[in-house]
């Protein structure tokens, strides 16, 4: 009885101290700024910034390896938020980043679609409906226009269709005034 209690206590103390020690020894500091940047990015994982996803891009911004103006799905609003968070100047989309395209959504030509589900797997936001050997279609409201579904389609039946400006989606355009150096 006493031996059993002692053995279990010994085990508990031993494991507890090993875990306690390793919690201190192997402590990993999470970079909170990366989390915050990642929270602003749209999480479409589209790779248009040149990084394999939103989190790698967030890490690159945090380490200073990438500019804040490389995320087309985030739009100018996203750049403004990033600029505010990091305390830097707002920058319009850079020349090297993908040029800002008119907001468009993917459209599947349903007569050509063979129902292979390849575009379903590529879609980062699950905006494509369909099943194997069934016709697929895109939910316009969910599509972010990242174009990731275009490459995998074996019959090239996906096209990008610009969203027409209607009363319901019109927004006031952010005024862009080129900055001019003023000499005194």
């Amino acid at each position: 009885m006493i031996a059993a209690i002692l053995v279990m206590a010994l085990l508990g103390v031993l494991l507890g101290s090993i875990l306690g020690y390793s919690a201190v020894r192997f402590h990993v500091e999470d970079d909170p700024i990366v989390e915050q940047i990642d929270a602003i990015l749209p999480q479409t994982q589209c790779g248009q910034c040149g990084f394999p996803g939103c989190r790698p891009y967030a890490e690159a911004i945090a380490s200073g390896a990438a500019d804040i103006n490389r995320c087309p799905p985030g739009g100018e609003a996203g750049i403004h938020k990033l600029a505010e968070l990091l305390g830097v100047e707002f920058k319009p989309f850079g020349d090297d980043a993908a040029p800002a395209k008119p907001k468009s959504v993917a459209r599947i030509d349903e007569n050509t679609c063979i129902g292979c589900t390849l575009c379903l797997q590529a879609c980062p936001v699950d905006a494509i409906l369909g099943a194997a050997k069934q016709m697929h279609t895109v939910i316009d409201a969910e599509c972010t226009g990242c174009e990731l579904c275009i490459a995998p389609c074996p019959v090239d039946c996906i096209t990008m269709v610009p969203v027409a400006e209607t009363v319901s989606n019109w927004r006031w355009k952010y005024p862009v005034t080129p900055l001019v150096q003023v000499h005194h």
């Binding site: 090993i18 390793s22 192997f26 402590h27 990993v28």
Partner: peptide
Amino acid sequence: GIVNFTEMFVRWA
């Protein structure tokens, strides 16, 4: 205990 230790160690290493 080992699972917890492994998790901490792998995270660090």
